[in-house]
Amino acid sequence: MKINSLDKLKKIRNEYQKNVCLRVNSTDSENSDIRIEILIGMATCGISAGAKDTFNAFQEELAKQGVNDAKVVSVGCIGYCHSEPTVQVNIRGREPVLYGNVKKEEVQEIVQKHIKGGNPIEALTLAINFERA
């Protein structure tokens, strides 16, 4: 399908909005289709630190613990090389939480305590010190 006008582009933008509105502003995202989103930094740096294992572990663990309204997304690098792999958890209506050093061993706890239980694991969180243009 060709996008041959600015209007068509805007239509597509609106159509896909609900897929990303959780990421733009998770505290105000009533119309998001997705309730929980797990963003995993999968650039070269993240992958070499084990992000692929973390990614797979999240998918397995979510299935195992019966969470079926969460989506795992592979994203680029957030720039925190000191704490790769990094994982950001966005839950509808809540502030996003960024985790560092999430090896596959940490995944079970995050799914259980944060994603199911609603309590972020303080010891693993990193501060997000930037805004996006």
Binding site: Y16, N19, L39, S74, V75, C77, G79, F130, R132, A133
Partner: peptide
């Protein structure tokens, strides 16, 4: 908070999906 312009989408969207 610092403003990211060049890196605005890094770590936010799936780079393999144009619709995002």
């Amino acid at each position: 908070k610092l403003l990211r312009i060049a890196l605005r989408n890094c770590g936010l969207l799936n780079p393999e999906d144009i619709f995002e």
